[in-house]
């Protein structure tokens, strides 16, 4: 696919003996919202970390907008890590300064507006914030960039269900329309409606890549139901464990 934003070919990653990714071939287009789904330990975070250049693949090729992960791709990729990495003494506004300094596409005004609508006081220190509020600040930092690729690793895991809807709405209304959003999660039913397509990972392999509407049409059930079915049935049939 010539216009794909993400292209992986034979991508593998080993941690010592353990294979986190095994021969992943994946193409993702532009302007899509994609769910990266899989049980714990299936390789979701590893794939995201390779895409944003934090990890190097053991084998295979990966390109983002036609280039290997590096300084250029970092300028167009906005990454939400699965854990917090900010100093506790900082205020949200300090973080905005930092991001404005590092990323040309960071929109400070947008960050302030998003804080207001999420009910976060940007003058508060990180250490005084609840877990959910910290997650919101992280999300604001990531979504206030006009990036081409947003990599969101478990963006809704720590917040209550009502805030989840609000956060999904924030993602929907704030992503750059020409940009692609890749969201890893196992809370599928909460985000199914906003996804264009889903990628199922299992034991480091892509076992399904299709649009949400195709899955519903072909299977007559939701992606969440299909996920539960696939990952419940598998250990029984092979007897590999």
């Amino acid at each position: 696919m010539a216009d794909s934003l993400i292209c992986c070919r034979g991508l593998s990653k080993a941690y010592g003996q353990r294979m986190a990714l095994q021969g992943v071939d994946l193409d993702l287009g532009r302007g899509r919202i994609v769910g990266l789904l899989g049980p714990n330990g299936s390789g979701k975070t590893t794939l995201i970390k390779i895409l944003c250049g934090l990890l190097r693949p053991t084998q295979g090729v990966v390109t983002v907008d036609g280039q290997a992960p590096g300084p250029y791709t970092k300028s167009i990729v906005s990454y939400l890590p699965d854990r917090m990495y900010f100093a506790a003494w900082m205020k949200a506004t300090d973080l905005f300064d930092l991001f404005a300094d590092f990323y040309e596409d960071f929109d400070r005004q947008k960050a302030m507006d998003m804080c207001r609508s999420l009910g976060v006081d940007p003058g508060d220190q990180i250490k005084t914030m609840s877990k959910g509020t910290k997650e919101k600040v992280q999300l604001v930092l990531v979504m206030a960039r006009k990036a081409q690729l947003y990599l969101l690793d478990e963006p809704i895991a720590g917040v209550d269900p009502a805030a989840r809807d609000f956060i999904m709405n924030t993602i929907l209304t704030n992503y750059n329309e020409a940009g692609t959003v890749l969201i890893s999660t196992h809370l599928i039913s909460d985000i199914e409606r906003v996804l264009d397509e889903v990628v199922f990972l299992q034991s480091g392999r892509v076992i399904l890549h299709n649009s949400v509407d195709n899955i519903r049409e072909q299977e007559g059930k939701s992606v969440d139901a299909l996920f539960r079915e696939m990952f419940r049935a598998m250990p029984m049939e092979g007897g590999r464990f």
């Binding site: 302007g31 929907l172 329309e177 409606r193 996804l195 264009d196």
Partner: peptide, 17 residues
């Protein structure tokens, strides 16, 4: 499209379709 999509809580591409 974007307004309707946000109101329904769905992806704009889906509302477009």
């Amino acid at each position: 499209v974007r307004e309707l999509a946000a109101d329904a809580g769905v992806n704009p591409n889906t509302m477009q379709r």
